[in-house]
Amino acid sequence: MTDETFRLALVNAGTGDPSSTALLGSRFAESLAAIASARGKAIAVSTVNLRELASDITTAITSQLTSPNLAKATDTLRQADGIVAAAPVYKAGPSGLFTSFFHVLDNDLLIGKPVVLAATAGTARHALVTDTEMRSMFAYLRTLIAPTSLFAAPEDWGDTALSMRIDRAARELMLLMESGFARRVKDESWGSYQHEFGSAGGTEIGIDLETDLMRLAAGGPAR
């Protein structure tokens, strides 16, 4: 038994209070904490409420300016061992606030991170949004997406099947976090992904001097 603590970042794009999206995220976090506890481990949850970052996100999109609060949210995700990303469904897709937040993050911020996708909607007809809309963006970000996604329409809140799925997804995330996959990718294969100077939330500051472009910068021939 260890008392290892895993950091969960809960990204909540719900805007209401109470919010069914926030509720789905926190139900997930509770389930994950229970599973961790039974294994002698602990979960530290950091919540990123996108409502509070709404104008910071649009500023980043229109003016390429990262506010201190947005930088803090970026740090939270960068330091997380696992992420649950929860969005309300608007017009057959995750909300623009949710997708915009991930659009302004560095492409290499979340490489290999285990993520559980979660969505809520007013009707069960949106049930595949997590898998058909959200999964592709997280694939682009090179995250490790848990097999089980979570979706809750109003009627699901009265059905124990939702709790079962939450527990299942939480266990998947637990196992993925325990595998240390993201850390090992970073240790063994980080250089094989595309990076920019200052990317990965400002941590990518290594500069390879042995590239063709660097040789050209120092007066060498173009290749």
Binding site: S55, T58, T59, T62, S63, L65, S67, P68
Partner: peptide, 16 residues
Amino acid sequence: PVYGNGPSLEDFTDMT
């Protein structure tokens, strides 16, 4: 152009 209709004057002067 560029930063108009985005951040507030106060935020922009704080951040830049």
